[in-house]
């Protein structure tokens, strides 16, 4: 897995590349905590390159969501591939997270 961070329209965009599973989740968790502690509150996760997510991945996404929500921020996901979205659907996370189709929709939703 690889994470890329960049700022766009006051939001921190996170590109999640590869698979988010038991092995890679701790690294994601560590980096996200650093970003959140650094003061960022608005995050948009670019899931276009996220190939696979396991329950561990779901957990760290959930943790991010909770942390950001606690600080009054926003966490939006977009560009999710079908298999990954299936996993979200099974555990109803599609209802929990704000999931939009693309980046412009994501940016719009934070405006």
């Amino acid at each position: 897995m690889e994470l890329k961070f960049y700022q766009e329209n006051n939001a921190t965009i996170i590109e999640i590349i590869g698979s988010l599973d038991t092995m890679t989740a701790p690294e994601y968790e560590k980096q996200m905590i650093e970003m959140i502690d650094g003061g960022s509150t608005v995050f948009i996760a670019d899931c276009t390159q996220l190939d696979y997510i396991s329950s561990s991945g779901l957990r760290v996404l959930l943790m991010t969501l909770k942390n950001i929500s606690n600080k009054g921020g926003k966490f939006i996901l977009f560009g999710m591939q079908e298999p990954v979205f299936e996993v979200f659907k099974i555990c109803r996370f599609d209802n929990l997270f704000t999931i939009v189709a693309d980046k412009s929709a994501a940016l719009q939703s934070i405006a």
Binding site: L62, I90, C91, R92, F93, N95, L96
Partner: peptide, 10 residues
């Protein structure tokens, strides 16, 4: 039929 989130989410 899925009745909700996994347990412990919220």
């Amino acid at each position: 039929t899925v009745h909700g989130f996994p347990l412990g989410v919220m």
